[in-house]
């Protein structure tokens, strides 16, 4: 029987993932993507294994979002090389849109992220968003947990132009919004409601000169500088992925934000909150709001999840079984 018909042993897989073994990492990501019942329960066991060991590792989960063409992938590539110089390992989840007709997708982000093929400390997995309303496919959150277990930094890159599409912020510690110079659009979108979401704003392509400077000052003026979560003043930066300027500063600010979260002991709490929201979303996608009502309503579910925070994924599966 070919190897991939038998789900791998979750415990061994989790250990190999933590050890940064690339083949295991690839297998774990494939497993989380796999909808077959046997794979599904293996996946739940894997998530539980990984979750147990997670808190110990001081790894960071960063989201990069922004309109198409803003240069998110090039910026990611530039960040990767700065992080590599700082001795950090990086896992990237790059989300691309799917075709509504065929379900097929062109996953093109690797092209712009091309780094050294010999570097074991960088791992890129592309994902199609597969028609998910929020712009992120349902697998992203569990996959990011796998990446977190293996790398110092996990970065989720996704297209986000409107309020509804910025749910990358609902699963990351730090969300960075990349704006395109000269597109009044970015400012419009920011005004339209995602103003509150990002922790960091960056205007890419500062090599474009005056246009980039104007966008920078417009955004600076439009932003409410104090983040709604408190204790954080949203910095508005300027960078250029093309000539590498401003990238070090961006990496510094990201690190600073992480430090602030950690000092306040928010990381664990925040990730549990996101896991809860993700589970709610999965349940809603699968069973509709009726299903949520049958489980006692949103608040009750979140309370239950809170109570089962160490076995979150098993509890999620138990909730599913109640509805099936």
């Amino acid at each position: 029987m070919p190897a991939n018909l038998q789900p791998p042993d979750p415990e061994q897989l989790a250990m190999a993932v933590r050890g940064g073994e690339r083949a295991a990492l690839a297998a774990a990501l494939n497993l989380l993507d796999d909808k077959r019942p046997a794979s599904r329960s293996s996946a739940i066991a894997l998530m539980t294994e990984l979750q147990t060991g997670q808190a110990a590792k001081n790894s960071r989960l960063i989201g990069i979002t922004g309109p198409p063409g803003a240069g998110k992938s090039s910026l990611t590539a530039a960040l990767i090389s700065v992080w590599r110089q700082r001795g950090l390992s990086i896992g990237v989840l790059a989300v691309d849109p799917s075709s509504p007709i065929s379900g097929g997708a062109l996953l093109g982000d690797r092209l712009r992220m091309k780094t050294s093929s010999e570097d074991d400390a960088v791992f890129v997995r592309s994902l199609a968003c597969r028609g998910q309303f929020g712009g992120l496919s349902a697998e992203v959150w569990p996959m990011s947990l796998v990446m977190l277990a293996a790398f110092d930094i996990t970065l989720i890159e996704t297209v986000g132009v409107g309020q509804r599409e910025i749910d990358v912020a609902d699963m990351c510690d730090t969300t960075c919004y990349v704006a395109q110079p000269g597109s009044g659009d970015s400012v419009q979108f920011l005004k339209a409601g995602i103003l509150e979401v990002p922790h960091i704003l960056v205007v890419n392509k500062e090599d474009m000169g005056a246009v980039a400077r104007r966008t920078l000052s417009e955004l600076g003026a439009a932003m409410s500088r104090e983040h709604s979560e408190g204790n954080w003043t949203v910095p508005v930066l300027s960078a250029s992925a093309t000539n590498g300027s401003g990238i070090e500063a961006l990496a510094d600010v990201m690190e600073q934000h992480h430090k602030v979260l950690r000092e306040q002991g928010l990381i664990k709490q925040r990730r549990q909150h996101y896991q809860g929201k993700w589970i709610l979303k999965r349940l809603r996608d699968e069973f509709g709001s009726n299903g949520l009502t049958r489980l006692g309503g949103t608040d009750s579910i979140l309370d239950q999840l809170q109570a089962h925070s160490s076995t979150l994924f098993e509890h999620y599966e138990a909730l599913r079984q109640r509805l099936l």
Partner: peptide, 25 residues
């Protein structure tokens, strides 16, 4: 046809292709 396609353009080394195939599953 419904495939999810990974294509990185021209001039790749055998090592890059092999690693991309693994990373992308």
């Amino acid at each position: 046809a419904g495939f999810e396609i990974v294509y990185e353009g021209i001039r790749l080394t055998p090592a890059q292709i092999a690693r991309a195939a693994q990373e992308e599953g």
